[in-house]
């Protein structure tokens, strides 16, 4: 039995040593040329996704919210050649103050824009628009809107919402309106 095991092991050892000899590869200089041609398949490699990051997507939602609040604001109308707030416009100022004091609105800055009708195109008209904007800013501040959130500007007669030559049209142009800014 022991002899049988011994002979079997000897034969196996011989067989193994014979196999090792056969698997030796001799690579001659320039032997690479004999390698199979390989085509790198690069289609689809390195494609990146372009789009808004989550941060950007939240910024867009913020701007959308800002524009929505802006569109809800009421315009304040003025009498011919005047910059004091009319009694009938006070509820609109109250409404705007509440709107701008909402938690959702508090993160935005407010540009208070003064406008005039077409009568006159001189410096006085631009100053009149400015005084209208100032009146509204002060009225909003008195209702709790942080003055540091508000800036004012006059567009004089350059920004009409109505261009017909009617009394209704001129009255629509004598106004203060708001632009919210991030």
């Amino acid at each position: 039995m022991r002899k049988a095991v011994f002979y079997t092991l000897c034969v196996a050892a011989l067989l193994l040593s014979g196999c090792a000899k056969k698997s030796v590869e001799i690579v001659a200089p320039g032997g690479e040329a004999n390698a199979k041609p390989t085509t790198e398949v690069s289609e689809g490699e390195g494609i990146k996704t372009i789009g808004e990051t989550e941060e950007q997507m939240s910024e867009e939602a913020r701007l959308k919210k800002m524009k929505m609040i802006e569109s809800e604001a009421k315009k304040i109308y003025f009498d011919f050649d005047k910059y004091n707030i009319r009694a009938d416009q006070v509820p609109n100022v109250d409404y705007d103050a509440k709107l701008f004091n909402l938690e959702d609105a508090k993160e935005f800055k407010i540009k208070v824009e003064g406008n005039c009708d077409e009568w006159g195109s001189d410096e006085y008209n631009y100053a009149l628009g400015l005084k209208r904007a100032k009146s509204v800013k002060e009225a909003l501040a008195a209702r709790g809107v942080d003055p540091n959130r508000m800036s004012i500007i006059s567009y004089g007669e350059s920004n009409p919402v109505c261009t017909e030559h009617t009394k209704e049209c001129w009255a629509k142009n004598r106004r203060v309106e708001f632009e919210l800014m991030p």
Partner: peptide, 27 residues
């Protein structure tokens, strides 16, 4: 300037300007 800024006149020698300004929202 905040609010309003206009060059209304220039002196004869061009060195001085009269401006309408509203740095404190006051023209």
């Amino acid at each position: 300037s905040e609010g309003m800024l206009v060059c209304s006149d220039v002196s004869q020698d061009g060195t001085k300007l009269l401006l309408t300004m509203a740095p404190n929202m006051q023209p």
